[in-house]
Design a protein around this nucleic acid. Structure first.
Lengths: 126, 126
DNA sequence: GGAAGAACGCACGTTTTTGTAAGTATAATG
DNA sequence: CATTATACTTACAAAAACGTGCGTTCTTCC
């Protein structure tokens, strides 16, 4: 199979994970998480399992296309879990995985700080 | 002065700062901070005052144009301070402001977690 | 004395991202 | 029986982001 690299090298990469390095896989995860809707999805899901349409309503401004795409990326990264009930008017639930929840907490740290300190920064918004 | 709104309304907005709301100014700050290079710049500056070229070398993959643009946005948001010495081969220093440092710490929380937990997520990278 | 380095601004073209509109199957609602 | 709601997908197109190369203005280092 192509694309596979030695376990040792893999270990090296993971041990030295550095977002400053362009080729480090952590960069991609970071980009997914900090994508325009990534953080908001994570944040919304901290409120518990929710279905697609609920997320859409909760996150102001997302289009269905973007929400679906974002959810797929986060799912591929192992941050959110998707459970589709096999019923005919579709019913799909999204939940944070264990790692997803941990990450989401960090996200709250960031967004929370911003919300709380907006007054100190708004000169730009004025 | 145009563009000014009542102090009460301003207060309301700031008190209710909510990234989930599309029109909330916190959304813009969030977007600047989580922009492709925003977090990396903040991270790099946690290492102390640095000049443009040093930042460029440190952040893998940034182009001069993007670095300049990102720095300007963060400066406008009051997160980084720019000090240009008036000498002829240009010399400019960038430093985090007090709020900038606080925010940067939150950023470290996020990126640090990602770097440390990459092994738990990499299935996507494999 | 030619080359490199400093910190960008600018024009240009490409790449990526994002939004819009439309379509799908079917069950429940009025 | 027409509508509405669900969770998307796909095609198309506009918008935003991005990178590259060039120019600037001097000084320092081969």
């Amino acid at each position: 199979m192509m694309g596979s690299i030695g376990a040792e090298m893999q270990d090296e990469i993971l041990r030295k994970a550095d977002v400053m390095a362009e080729a480090c896989p952590s960069r991609q995860i970071l980009n997914h998480v900090t994508s325009r809707w990534g953080m908001l999805v994570l944040l919304a899901l901290l409120g518990g399992t929710q279905r697609f349409s609920a997320l859409k309503r909760r996150i102001g401004g997302v289009s269905e296309r973007m929400l679906a795409q974002t959810l797929q990326l986060l799912e591929a990264d192992g941050l959110v879990h998707r459970h589709a009930h096999d019923v005919v008017p579709p019913h799909v639930d999204y939940t944070l995985t264990a790692p997803g929840r941990e990450l989401a907490e960090k996200v709250v740290g960031l967004t929370g700080w911003i919300e709380a300190n907006l007054p100190r920064l708004t000169p730009a918004a004025a």
